[in-house]
Design a protein around this nucleic acid. Structure first.
Lengths: 134, 134
DNA sequence: GTAGCAACTCAAGTCCACTTGAGGTCAAGA
DNA sequence: TCTTGACCTCAAGTGGACTTGAGTTGCTAC
């Protein structure tokens, strides 16, 4: 199984070295081997980082991802409120879906205004959204 | 048309006075009337704040919302790249929808693990997600 | 052996979105 | 009149997620 340098991880994931060191510092990534002082990463880091990136874009904080990665996915510990976290985040995500839906509809309507009639168009679409009509 | 005190706005929207003053400071809310030094809000503030809240939960920064609120919804100015912003945010939101979908599926699978067989269950569901299978 | 380069540590800085705290003002009620 | 309460300003602090910069170490090549 190939091992990766910090720079190889960066080029394959887009996550900068400073971020990788920071993740390690806050315990999101567990300390891994060193060769003459330099970090060596296992290929499994790539999946971990993919999950971190997906999670962040889905509204998870790093500490929430830490609970999932360290308590759940690694099963290093059955302790902790990860059940509660999972339930809470599922609700939060459903709320986000609703909000994203609203904003998408608003922006799609606004996008279709042309610059000439911008003012009136905006008054119309804006009012429509502000008053909760479809 | 009724005017609202800062405290009334807070109770009706949940947005704290400190946040309202901050929004004003950064130009997200335009300066409004004062009565003996105290801010007086028009009822339309409620819709504006609703949009801000929805926007924030949909991943908009306050400065992005400022562009929409001040350049678009108020039509005070046709200047600025709000077209570009709208296109960019629509793409970002679609990406968020995908990410939220992935995380939801992961958490729903994890939730259904029971504590006894946690370790194995997680290995299975975790692997499934890590390797991109459904 | 020394120059170069990639990586290292540690402290400090940055951006965002606010909150907190100290001290000040003003109309209304006891 | 005097106190209370709601508001005010302004500066500084907070938490999250990193980045930046200075100074150091340790192979590798010449």
């Amino acid at each position: 199984m190939a091992t990766l340098s910090i720079n190889q991880v960066t080029t394959q994931t887009g996550v900068r070295p400073s971020a990788l060191r920071y993740y390690e510092e806050i315990g999101l990534l567990r300390p891994m081997g060193r060769v003459s002082g330099r970090r060596q990463y296992d290929e499994s880091i790539l999946q971990r980082l993919a999950l971190i990136q997906t999670g962040q874009r889905a509204g998870f904080t790093l500490s929430e991802l830490g609970v999932l990665l360290n308590n759940v996915l690694d099963a290093t510990s059955t302790a902790g409120d990860w059940h509660a976290l999972v339930e809470r985040k599922l609700k939060e995500m459903d709320a986000m879906l609703v909000n994203i839906g609203s904003m998408k509809r608003l922006l799609e309507d606004i996008r279709d205004c042309d610059d000439e009639s911008l003012a009136e168009c905006i008054v119309l679409t804006g009012q429509r959204h502000m008053t909760g009509q479809s």
